[in-house]
Write a protein that binds this DNA or RNA. Structure first.
Length: 213
DNA sequence: CTCCAGGACAAGC
DNA sequence: GCTTGTCATGGA
């Protein structure tokens, strides 16, 4: 690899500054947001949050019926699936008294398989939860990450865990770094590369071209 | 009208 | 292992 992965991070950080993610009022809101945003525009997730209002707590959601929850999160799409899966996740969360600090005591090697075992929590969602709620360094791979690394000329693995481990080998295993890097990738993609394989008007375009040529 | 957005899962090969 | 159909809304 001719271009160090960490330099992409540094360029994004220089341009956009620290993002201090995840945008959420509480750890529970972050965890639910990770499930609601699956293949869904964040604007629609915000509408669901607005509908939930002060009922966006594990206690309140645990007491709702499926239909009540589904109606509130309807704007976020897949609302029947997501309602069921959010209920199941909240049941799991209850084992830890709805307290992320209890979950943080578990090692990453044990916690990640536990999350993946939950219905509706796949690899990307699990890694988001690990980085943004449980302070565990497990690099998040999403469509934006693939697009960016392809743009920079990387021949990245198609397999999720292969790609994740590839990046984890390239940069320090630091949860704060993982947190910022993924946030910067998303912010960058939303501003400049949302639907285009090539970043037109991208602030890093000159750098991209310099690297490829 | 079509296409897509910070995916996950089950079924089929 | 990998590919495909399904789930669904709202904005461009």
């Amino acid at each position: 690899m001719s271009y160090p992965c960490i330099k992409i991070y540094q360029k994004l950080l220089d341009y956009y500054g620290y993002q201090s993610w995840w945008p959420a009022m509480s750890d529970y809101e972050m965890l639910i947001g990770a499930m609601l945003t699956q293949n869904t525009n964040w604007r629609n997730v915000d509408k669901a949050f607005a509908n939930l209002g002060d009922k966006l707590t594990p206690q309140a959601i645990a007491e709702m019926t499926h239909d009540e929850l589904a109606a509130l999160i309807r704007p976020a799409g897949y609302y029947n699936q997501k309602a069921e899966r959010i209920k199941l996740f909240t049941e799991w969360f209850r084992q830890y008294d709805y307290d992320v600090n209890q979950i943080k005591k578990l090692p990453l090697s044990q916690l990640r398989p536990m999350l993946l075992n939950l219905k509706g929590v796949g690899k990307e969602t699990a890694d988001c939860m690990l980085v943004y709620a449980f302070d565990k360094p497990s690099f998040v791979i999403d469509a934006y990450t693939r697009r960016l690394f392809n743009r920079f000329g990387y021949d990245v693995p198609k397999n999720y865990d292969d790609f994740r481990e590839f990046i984890e080998r390239e940069i320090p295993k630091d949860v704060q770094l993982y947190n910022e890097f993924h946030a910067l990738i998303v912010v960058h993609a939303k501003k400049h590369c949302q639907t285009k394989p090539v970043c037109q008007g991208c602030p890093l375009e000159n750098e991209c071209l310099k690297i490829i040529n």
